[in-house]
């Protein structure tokens, strides 16, 4: 039953989940905030891409750029509303969690009010071509494009985080926020950078997922939950753990829908995650707080 098709769809899903989970993971470890508004960022980026597609119907790059730019903008907006006023207040983590949940509630409803409940379809960014790997394994161009573009953007972001000054600041914040603040790294400016970059990742994921699903106000919910649980299983704050978990869960999803059927996907994924978390309460790559200290 585990054939080429399953592997192909597992890799596609893993790459998209990886984009989402790494965004959530980076935000958690550098800002100490759980961004529940990620689903709203995702949905808004989908609408941004749709708007770009309305304006420039023939340009695939415009659709991608529209999604990524909207995602980055919405990410910065969430940062300005939820992180900047709260980050030095008491009980920050819970209040930031609730604030992002509130943004998610009102943002989704605002999208519903502005664009209406009807779903929108994005044009096929990567064209309608197909490639035959073997006789029964056929890869459509959008799957190949999804995998390629998400890997490219992930590598770009990781390289940027390794080499640039801003990336160094973000990594310093991820290792030790107080220490980073002590050596003169601006918490607020770094927060804007982090949220914009992760928003851009969510924007790309939105465009890629909208190749197979539609854009709707509620389309961000399932990716948010998938991204959250992948980040959770990988260990919040660990990029490599998130990648491993994305591959695992992508494979489980593809295998489950091939073997058991689509409605059991979430159940098997949850069983896997609960099993992982019972063995390692902080995920695959997560360290216990005592160990980190």
């Amino acid at each position: 039953m585990i054939d080429g098709y399953v592997i192909v769809s597992a890799v596609t899903l893993a790459s998209i989940y990886g984009l989402l989970a790494i965004g959530i993971s980076i935000i958690w470890s550098s800002l100490g905030m759980l961004n529940m508004a990620f689903g709203f960022t995702f949905a808004a980026a989908g609408y941004g891409a749709w708007y770009a597609a309305q304006q420039f119907p023939d340009s695939a790059a415009a659709v991608l750029a529209g999604g990524i730019l909207t995602g980055a903008l919405v990410g910065a907006l969430v940062c300005a509303v939820a992180f900047i006023p709260l980050h030095d207040k008491p009980n920050f983590t819970v209040r930031a969690l609730i604030a992002t949940l509130a943004i998610s509630l009102l943002g989704t409803q605002a999208l519903l009010a502005v664009f209406g409940p009807r779903v929108k379809a994005l044009p096929k960014v990567f064209g309608p071509k197909t490639f035959e790997l073997t006789e029964d394994v056929v890869i459509t161009a959008d799957k190949l494009g999804s995998v390629a573009s998400s890997i490219v953007l992930l590598l770009l972001v990781l390289a940027w985080m390794k080499t640039s000054r801003r990336g160094l600041e973000i990594r310093a914040m991820m290792q030790n926020p107080e220490g980073a603040a002590l050596v003169g790294i601006g918490v607020r400016s770094t927060a804007f950078a982090v949220m914009a970059v992760t928003g851009a990742l969510a924007g790309l994921a939105a465009v890629l997922l909208s190749q197979t699903y539609f854009v709707s106000p509620y389309s961000g919910l399932l990716p948010l939950i998938k991204g959250l649980i992948v980040a959770l299983a990988g260990g919040l704050g660990s990029v490599s753990g998130a990648l491993i978990a994305a591959c695992l869960l992508g494979f489980v999803e593809a295998a489950t829908s091939a073997v058991l059927g689509g409605q059991y996907v979430l159940i098997t994924q949850f069983a896997l995650i609960i099993a992982i978390l019972l063995v390692r309460p902080r995920g695959i790559g997560g360290l216990l707080d005592e160990t980190r200290e």
Partner: peptide
């Protein structure tokens, strides 16, 4: 076994499940 936020995320997923 889980701590605060891990648990919040897990339960959010459970509702969707």
């Amino acid at each position: 076994r889980l701590e605060g936020f891990y648990y919040a995320l897990l339960t959010l997923g459970l509702v969707e499940l």
